[in-house]
């Protein structure tokens, strides 16, 4: 990635963030003219957490997606397709509705544990260097299992409103989160991101194959453990606050590698920036769409991401055929 590209991405990210704070502009300006204090409160307590969460979650999905793709040496590995986000959602649902711990910290812990469990199961099922088919099938199996268990947990929950309660969150939503909740997602995500950036070089070396990476002096088993734990930490913490949002973790790294001449490790930083931009834009689209009510953002990313995924699968098949 050249300096100019990095700058451009940073500008786009900053622009999307500011736009997310400012838009829709008319309402905020109108309130500001009547009540400055209220407008400030609106900006800081409603729009800021929402924009910040879009940025944090999008960036985390991008970075985690890039790291997981580098680890599995496969462009179709991503936190959602491999069942990590479903595992995290299951962890959070069990914590909240079965054990009855609704404190943000408890949700985060449950969610991270769920993500970690899903990733470890994936490693056990698919193996460290997974064929695309094995990886996707294992991910599908884990997602299906986690989804079914989530529904079961909600059905068995003591609260009769569990389903209704959880629905918006499960579909992925950034609406009405507090600054404190933002911190609960942001701090683990920032930690995970910073530590993932330390793995850029070893993950690039892994592009040469596991044997060569080891012959160069990289401890591949330890690298694998670190990527799994850091991804679970960052993605789990975000899912606990905002639910499962799909496809950003798949799409962002694929664009990012075009900027890093296919270096999978170096793609972590641009993937984070692209992921942040994508989710900020998706949130803006959800907010500005004239639908009368707000769509859960996860629905939009899935609506846009699924066709891209289909294209990707077809493209890979053509390439194999050719």
């Amino acid at each position: 990635m050249t300096r100019a590209t990095a700058l451009l991405l940073a500008l786009a990210l900053g622009g999307a963030f500011l736009a997310s704070l400012a838009l829709p502009y008319g309402d905020l300006a109108g309130i500001y003219r009547q009540d400055t204090g209220l407008a400030t409160t609106l900006l800081i307590e409603l729009r800021l957490p929402r924009a910040a969460l879009a940025l944090i979650y999008g960036a985390m999905l991008g970075a985690a997606g890039a790291a997981v793709q580098a680890l599995f040496a496969n462009p179709l590995a991503s936190p959602d397709l491999t069942g990590t986000t479903s595992g995290a959602a299951l962890g959070a649902v069990i914590t909240a509705y079965i054990f009855g711990f609704a404190a943000p910290i408890a949700l985060s812990v449950g969610s991270v544990a769920g993500a970690l469990g899903a990733l470890l199961l994936l490693l056990a099922l698919a193996g460290p260097k997974a064929e695309t088919a094995t990886l996707l099938l294992a991910g599908l199996a884990i997602s299906a299992l986690a989804g079914a268990l989530t529904t079961l947990a909600l059905a068995l929950a003591p609260s009769p409103f569990a389903f209704y309660d959880a629905y918006d969150w499960l579909m992925g939503s950034l609406v009405d989160r507090s600054l404190a909740q933002t911190a609960f997602a942001g701090i683990p995500a920032a930690l995970s991101f910073a530590l993932l950036l330390r793995l850029v070089r070893p993950l690039d070396s892994l592009a040469l194959g596991e044997e060569v990476a080891q012959s160069l002096g990289h401890d591949v088993p330890s690298l694998r453990r670190q990527v799994v734990c850091l991804t679970a930490l960052g993605v789990g913490a975000c899912v606990a606050i905002c639910g499962a949002i799909g496809f950003v973790g798949l799409v962002a790294p694929i664009f990012a590698r075009r900027l890093t001449r296919s270096h999978p490790g170096r793609a972590i930083l641009p993937a984070a920036m692209i992921g942040g931009i994508l989710l900020l834009l998706a949130d803006l689209a959800v907010r500005l769409a004239p639908l009368g009510r707000t769509l859960p953002i996860g629905v939009l990313t899935a609506l846009l991401g699924a066709p891209f995924f289909l294209w990707l699968v077809a493209h890979m098949r053509w390439r194999v055929a050719a």
Binding site: A73, N74, D204, S205, A207, L208, G209, V212, L216, R257, R261, S262, H263, P264
Partner: peptide, 14 residues
């Protein structure tokens, strides 16, 4: 090799 690296980059990574 899983990724479509440039030959030059592959040699540099090694």
């Amino acid at each position: 090799i899983a990724w479509p690296l440039l030959a030059r980059d592959l040699i540099a990574l090694g």
